[in-house]
Design a protein around this nucleic acid. Structure first.
Lengths: 236, 236
DNA sequence: AAGTGGTCTAGACCACCTG
DNA sequence: AGGTGGTCTAGACCACTTG
């Protein structure tokens, strides 16, 4: 919506690919043609195509053209900051989120360390259980620094990210995720339908704002049989 | 080494960051200054900085400048096509690779499906065990389409990717990784020091060449306590 | 030879941050 | 006001593919 030409071209082409008017293996118009179509310069078109390429939508071949990839066979997001809500929407599953606890207060030493703040600075703590097809699959523990706008149970049941995107003045910039596999804890056992699996997949996520401050730490604890992580990586 | 200006600027800055002459939180010269330093245009400098940003080395703030991130705290690659050899070199561990079997022949139905080829087309099969600090931790099963240059045990003990990078005329373009957690198989038990862990982390990797053909399928099976996957993701 | 994407230039205007 | 990064333009030359 911004007056950003290359982003609007990008979104337009993404739509065409997802709607099917640009099917897999089909060839996009050449960069020069697109520049004329969108009344812009070729470099600007190239910026849009670069984004499509980075996100796994197209593939460019020198001398030949740009071609649509058939990636979304698994209907899954390319690795990135994708919220649970977006994710389940794509997978067309019945998914619900139950808020176990929501409070603001002093962090534990562990959380203070993870967020790299002093123990006297208050944090928001949100603990949620994600249910998919009637089974409690994911235990989400989120910790936010207290300068974010106040959270409510309704927001946490919906999408915290949507809320923050709309209310935060400074945007989200980048995140680091660490995936490990650990022994199940009593807390996991208490909240999840763990089916005797002794281990759990843990995704630790450190989210930074545009000014580089770390503002969120989260642990997403997944029952191993339902865990799935996808990574799309381009070379160089 | 190519006559590629922005790549050489990128590599130069990566070196400065990794050597420490550009420490974390320090500010890079402005884009205009870099353009003068490298005797090139600002857009070319920006291309290099964009790469640094994508790979988690720097962080740009409008109106202020570009700053070095302190990411490599965990000394781990940003998600991508990183080989075992590069990986262990960074972690400074004693790591060895043992080739269990190396052969060329008809694929199993499963492998033919994964590689999306007919069962009559031969494939290379490489099965390897990765040992770290004396423990057999990872079972790697690699399948290559037969048009690649011939493999030897020596190559497989070193780095298949380095070999392919040097010998393949058409380069590697992109890869999709799928991470799941599964029950341990008899094959895993036979080759790994599995320590009674009943589950195993499986990374399935589909690697494509620049002409978009899928040329490799691999399964990397990790003992859960040693498994670690890192993902760096930028927003938008 | 013509078309394609890959790289590069030398400008330009803007929004943002700092003095 | 001056510096910064973000976007955009209208050219240019190159390497690659195809007819």
């Amino acid at each position: 919506m911004l007056d950003n030409i290359y982003l609007s071209i990008y979104h337009d082409l993404v739509n065409q690919i997802e709607q099917g008017s640009l099917p897999p293996d089909s060839k996009l118009p050449s960069e020069n043609e697109l520049a004329v179509q969108y009344s812009t310069s070729r470099e600007t078109v190239r910026k849009a195509l670069h984004l499509l390429s980075q996100h796994g939508y197209i593939h460019k071949i020198k001398g030949k053209g740009s071609f649509v990839l058939h990636v979304n066979k698994f209907n899954f997001p390319v690795s990135g900051l994708v919220s649970f809500k977006e994710l389940t929407k794509r997978m067309r599953k019945k998914a619900t989120t139950k808020v176990i606890s929501l409070k603001r207060g002093r962090p534990s030493p562990y959380i203070a360390t993870q967020l790299n703040i002093s123990r006297t600075e208050e944090v928001w703590e949100v603990i949620r259980v994600r249910e998919i097809d009637g089974e409690k699959i994911i235990l989400d523990k989120d910790y936010f620094r207290s300068f974010i706008p106040p959270l409510t149970v309704e927001i946490c049941e919906d999408s915290i990210y949507e809320y923050l995107d709309q209310t935060l003045t400074v945007g989200i910039s980048f995140a680091k995720k660490f995936i490990t596999i650990e022994s199940i804890t009593e807390e996991d056992q208490a909240w999840l339908d763990h089916k005797e699996y002794p281990m759990i997949a843990v995704v630790r996520n450190y989210v930074h704002l545009e000014d580089n401050t770390l503002f969120q730490y989260s642990e997403s604890r997944h029952r191993p049989d339902k865990f799935r992580f996808v990574d799309f990586a381009r070379r160089a």
